[in-house]
Amino acid sequence: MWITVKLFANFRENRFKEARRQYPPGTTVGDVATDLEIDPGLIGMIFIHGRAAELDRVLGEDDVLALFPLLGGG
C-alpha cells in the first residue's frame, strides 16, 4: 500500500519533507519510524489526516502521516 509521509523540524534533516512510500499491509506508525531511522522516543506528535494517532496505529492505503518531534511555541 502507498502512504504519504510528511516530516517536520529536525526530522527533515537528511531525510525529506514529504514522500509517497510503499509499505506492506499491517504496517504501523512505529514501523514507518523505524524504517526512516527515527527514534520513536523522539516523536512528539503523530497525525494521520490531521488527527492525532499513536505509534501502534495500523496504517491504511493513502493515509497521510505527519511526524513531528516534541515542539511548542505560543
Binding site: 510528511k6 517536520f8 523540524a9 529536525n10 523522539l42 512528539g44 506528535m45 497525525f47 490531521g50 488527527r51 492525532a52 505527519a66 513531528f68 518531534p69 516534541l70 515542539l71 511548542g72 511555541g73 505560543g74
Partner: peptide, 23 residues
Amino acid sequence: PVSGQGLPTYGTAVLVNILHEIG
C-alpha cells in the same frame, strides 16, 4: 525538548506547520 531544542532552533513559528497539519 520544547524549551531546550525546539524553541531555540525554530522559534515559535515552528507552530505554522503543526497548526496547518491539524487544520
